[in-house]
Amino acid sequence: MQKTLQVTKYFFRNYYRSRSFYLMLVIDILICVLFIYFSFRYTSKIGAFAGRIIKNPPESIIKNVFDYIWNFALLYLPVLAAVFFGSPAISSEIEDRTAYHIFPLPISRYSLFAGKFIAAFLVSLVVIFIFLGVEWAVFPFVFHTYQVTAFYSTIYLVVIFLFSILSVTFLSSSIFNRNLYAYITVFVAYFLILNAAGYIINILYGYTPSYLLNVAAEILQTVYINIPIFGGSSSLSIAPASSSTILHSILIMLAYAFVSLAIAIILFERKEVR
């Protein structure tokens, strides 16, 4: 445990000094600036948007729609952060030849893996929490009141989602010895294959494949109002997702995380420096 913490400490330091971290911060800030601009510019139109679903929406619904729109970014920000920090986490040891220095050290690969994972997780959290902090801070400026309760639910949901997607990126990174392959695989798998699968299943079989990670991640938005991206109009509702839906999404995300982590650790343990 002590050694894992040491790995975390030094890898976290290496991460937050890296160009990837600063690039991620720039992206984060740009997204925040855009959302802040649109929040002040178009908040008055949220009522009209909500009004398409119910007549004369109350202020509580308008607040939920406001956060629903903000949380759109949270569907992608964890993915970007995970790809930036997780995809090269293992493959770079081989590609950048740092494995020659770290593999012969008296530390188990499990501890090394865990330390690196926690470091990548923490640095990704920094990026996400900056966004959440801005969202939290902007809300009272627009509505002159505190955040809605569901906002606090999104905090643990986004942490779980990050845990899940980061595990997937670590798996991809464990498979390959080249960073580029690890980056591309996660991008293609998440943004192309999962999205395509979601649409195709929805069109062909008429149901939302809630077992897909990207669909499960929609809980970050539907926790405010239940308008899933992949769902048809049949599931359109102004009511927030139920507790069982939230629990179901959490279980799906955790399943992806644990399966990916288990395979990734086995692969990392067997990885050789050739």
């Binding site: 030094y10 890898f11 890296s18 950048d96 030849r97 740092t98 020659y100």
Partner: peptide, 15 residues
């Protein structure tokens, strides 16, 4: 072994 590389953003001392 071989010519190792180190973590670019850490100083020699930190390594």
């Amino acid at each position: 072994v071989e010519q190792p590389e180190f973590y670019t953003y850490l100083t020699g001392r930190e390594i």
